[in-house]
């Protein structure tokens, strides 16, 4: 499903090179749940953004279903991202002025689907994420847990195979974090491939099958 091959990433400040990711190899199979575990600054976000085709590697490549997303021009990379990857962020990143419902439409807007099909997908996704009852509320009025569920509905709306989460519980209380893990379990049972970057110990003992990948200083200790 996802193959990361000899991936390195450096940032440059004038002449100074800082190596953020160093020679990473990672193979994620379909339906697997990966916990990318590492302290802040270890390079998790950078790795996720390259997997999602948002950033380019300095060396190596990322294949998604054998397509080299990291090497494709933006229009193709965006298509793969739109179709196959749903993203959930640490700060939820909703459009605060839009309603829950409107927020969930966003990933499907450039899809070319007719508006009615989009509405149908949004309804379905809102129900799965258990936020349908709050659909007309403006995002800024939601509680942290509700925002998270709205973000989940948005990540699911295009029915992607892969769900990428960056520090999903960093802004949630423990109760909502446990609820989130329950949702992840459901998604796992639905057969989604899940990649979670986190340093939250809650993810260390999940009651479903998962693989913890420790990350340290831009390297993966496998």
């Amino acid at each position: 499903m996802i193959r990361v091959e000899n991936l390195s990433k450096s940032f440059y400040h004038q002449q100074d090179e800082s190596k953020i990711l160093i020679d990473i190899n990672l193979h994620i199979k379909r339906g697997e749940c990966i916990i990318l575990k590492g302290i802040s600054g270890s390079g998790k976000t950078t790795l996720l953004s390259i997997i999602a085709g948002l950033d380019r590697p300095s060396k190596g490549k990322v294949l998604i279903d054998d397509e080299p997303i990291s090497k494709l021009p933006d229009i193709f990379a965006s298509k793969i991202r739109a179709k196959k990857i749903g993203m959930i962020f640490q700060h939820f990143n909703l459009f605060e002025n839009l309603s829950v419902y409107e927020n969930v439409t966003v990933p499907l807007i450039p899809s070319g689907l007719p508006l009615d099909d989009i509405y149908r997908a949004v309804d379905k996704s809102l129900k799965v994420a258990n936020i349908y009852h709050k659909r007309s509320l403006v995002a800024s009025r939601l509680s942290g847990g509700e925002k998270q569920r709205c973000a989940i509905a948005r990540a699911l709306v295009a029915d992607p195979d892969i769900i990428v989460c960056d520090e999903p519980t960093a802004n949630l209380d423990s109760q909502n974090s446990i609820l989130f893990i329950e949702t992840i379990k459901e998604l796992h049972l639905m057969g989604k491939t899940i990649v979670i970057a986190t340093h939250d110990p809650l993810f260390e003992n999940l009651n479903f099958k998962s693989r913890i990948v420790p990350m340290f200083d831009g390297k993966i200790d496998e």
């Binding site: 229009i75 965006s78 298509k79 739109a82 993203m87 990933p107 807007i109 450039p110």
Partner: peptide
Amino acid sequence: KREIGLLRALGWSIND
């Protein structure tokens, strides 16, 4: 800036 990054992360291309 944030909004643009968000749209991109949600599958919008630069052209979109």
